[in-house]
Design a protein around this nucleic acid. Structure first.
Lengths: 308, 308
DNA sequence: TTATTTGATGATTTATAGTCATGTTATAAC
DNA sequence: GTTATAACATGACTATAAATCATCAAATAA
């Protein structure tokens, strides 16, 4: 008597139709059941919620004020339910349509946004949430469930996540168009002698390798500026110095300004980027799209072993 | 496969708990059912909506991205349902909690609003909708279902509605405090000779009776002003003339200004007010309250036969 | 290796929802 | 007044859906 049991939405639907049509017979016909079924359903609903909803007067069902109010409530609930059904259809059709992406800075400012834009132009239904953070934080955020997938600089060590390698490239040298090295076709470690270097302030495998290499070869640079990766290109363009940087970031920035030059660099410092996610996302359509829709890199930037 | 059958909310609740607890065993314990029931319910839900929600991996259930989204949807739906249950409990406790009241002007500006205020101060849960219109329109509006109850001037003829008589009073004479008749203790028809009368412009039994009576007795008045009942008292207070009016309106207005006098009038012109509503509201609690909570009238205003 | 935990499944029971046949009451038609 | 029609209720029955029991298989912890 006291606790309301609304597991069966059917009785609510029958009530709603009854309220709208006014007679049990008509309701039964509309819903494709029998009149006695409607009568029973109503009686049971009233018993269940402990409220008389219709007055039985001269063999007619007359809606009581309580029925008016319940009807209003039910309209809301049923429309909510209808929305959910639509969402389910969409889910079935397109799979999960929301993805939270954490992205390392190297890819986060243009490369991944470009990818997302491509996906969304084909499938406007998806919702995307994108944030940029250093690779180690990306890994932690995905492990913790704050994000669904992460773009990271490889290698990463995480036994909880699936790691797909996506891109392998070699560092390139970025310099102002009017730089003294502008005519060289390839830049080497030797060329850096006496130069001012601009390097990322985040721990960075390639930059570390470079500095180690310079010290091994006993090459002295004029000085260095450490900066956030988003600011490096601007520093270079303004003549602060030259930088060794992953080619994706380099091309992303060069595309928006004409005062920068990109040069190959020897020896090769490798950058590898990948996607990390939990096992349960393995067969997800959005993950698939993220991999498929990555912009092509200029051929000469792709490391040999990924070219096949 | 294609049409979604969500008659059973139970499966949604089981899914929700499963999503939250992470294991079917725990879910079963929490919900007081068996583990096999949970397993079956989930399998059936997935089959029903055509979406895999959990990945079965090493005898564990791992939520898929689709489950994340469905969970969000279900939270909304279930909170909606919870609200509805609360509404139902309130309905059971207090009956229908919304009432639409149509009211004749005589009672609509102060008497009924005062009643409503009393009811709401005791039971803030109720929602009230109040409108003012002439008695015949009140009757039609209630018959048509646009309003739940109506306060009307009696008599009314409607076989579709229940009519409860609430108040029987006699017309009183309202005049400015500085009027020449201000010293009389009782006003009679004779006293109206040569006076300017202010009367309601709506068809009105008492006013009609008065005019008939005056013409029968061959009493000539100086002139008359017909006005909306809401404006009559202001006209009187400003010296336009005197009026014969129902005592409720008279006292309502006199209470807010000190330049008006109320005098008994002979012979008696009766006013009767009543409540009209459809049969299905007969036992409604709000109707009962409306009757109970009417402000007391000063004793001398109540007609003899209602005094008991 | 053993004990424990987890989810899945066949067989069975239980509970629910609905039908059928019929009854009663009211209204409309003749 | 009689008859036909239409409304809702109800006892008895049935089909369907839901849950259980008992048991299995896989994984993990002791």
């Amino acid at each position: 008597m006291s606790d309301i049991n609304l597991n069966s939405l059917k009785s609510l639907l029958i009530f709603k139709t009854l309220y709208e049509t006014g007679t049990a017979t008509r309701t039964a016909r509309d819903l494709g059941i029998t009149q006695s079924g409607v009568s029973r359903s109503l009686a049971q609903l009233e018993e269940n919620i402990g409220i008389a909803l219709f007055m039985r007067h001269k063999k007619r069902l007359i809606a009581l004020p309580e029925a008016d109010e319940l009807y209003g409530e039910i309209l809301g609930l049923l429309s909510n339910l209808e929305n959910m059904k639509h969402s389910i259809v969409a889910l079935r059709e397109f799979g999960a349509s929301r993805i939270r992406i954490a992205c390392a800075p190297a890819l986060g400012f243009a490369y991944v946004p470009k990818t997302i834009a491509r996906i969304l132009s084909d499938n406007p239904k998806y919702s995307v949430y994108l944030d940029i953070m250093p690779s180690p934080e990306v890994v932690r955020a995905v492990e913790a469930g704050y994000f669904d997938v992460g773009f990271v600089t490889l290698p990463v060590t995480s036994q909880a996540l699936v790691v797909d390698e996506l891109i392998a490239t070699e560092a390139v040298c970025l310099m102002p168009r009017n730089h003294s090295l502008a005519k060289a076709s390839v830049i080497t470690t030797e060329d850096l002698k006496g130069q001012h270097l601009v390097i990322p302030n985040q721990p960075n495998l390639a930059a570390d390798q470079l500095l180690l290499h310079l010290s091994e070869k006993n090459i002295r640079i004029a000085g260095k500026t450490e900066a956030n990766i988003a600011a490096i290109c601007s520093l270079v363009a303004n003549g602060v110095g030259i930088t060794l940087i992953n080619p994706i970031t380099a091309y992303d920035h060069q595309a928006t300004r004409d005062d920068l030059l990109i040069k190959p660099f020897k020896p090769a410092f490798h950058y590898r980027f990948g996607l990390v996610y939990k096992q349960n996302w393995a067969n997800n359509r959005l993950i698939g799209l993220l991999k498929e829709m990555l912009p092509e890199l200029p051929d000469h930037l792709v490391a040999e072993r990924l070219k096949d």
